[in-house]
Amino acid sequence: MLLSPNDAQSCLKCGKCTSGCDINRLDPSFIPHRLIHLVTMGMVADSISEYSIWKCSTCFTCSERCPQRIKVTEILWMLKEKAFKEGKSPDFVSKQSEIIKTHAKLFPISDKDNARRQKAGLPVIEEYPDGLANLRQILGDK
């Protein structure tokens, strides 16, 4: 099953996710347990308006540390998805989405890249010909 806000409900607000977070140490505005708390309070709309959700490095330290085994990193992905679908994500996300919809890869390979590979003795990588219709359909054609 894909995650839903219910998967955060057992949060104890203990803050163990935040206390182990590399990002929080450098940027106190990123507070994982606060974001999870908002989700448990039914305030998803508030949480996805916070730019800080995009600062998660997806290191999974919070998920590993959680005494309730809440998948904190994954809950943040769920919030990012909601933000993206409501047009509240930063520009870089829409840019990445367009690239992946067109090429089915985040870093499409060019002829120049392939020439460099051949020179180094590596095989040519074929560009994915037409992207992926399924992917375009799920992510929405613009």
Binding site: L2, L3, W54, W77, M78, K80, E81, F84, K85, S89, V93, Q96, S97, I100, A104, K105, L106, Y128, L132, N134, L135, I138, L139
Partner: peptide, 20 residues
């Protein structure tokens, strides 16, 4: 025919990421 593993797509749509 390998494509993106799905990692960057998790921020956009978790079903699309899993499909990838």
């Amino acid at each position: 025919c390998f494509t993106c593993c799905g990692f960057p797509v998790k921020s956009m749509d978790n079903l699309a990421a899993l499909y990838l």
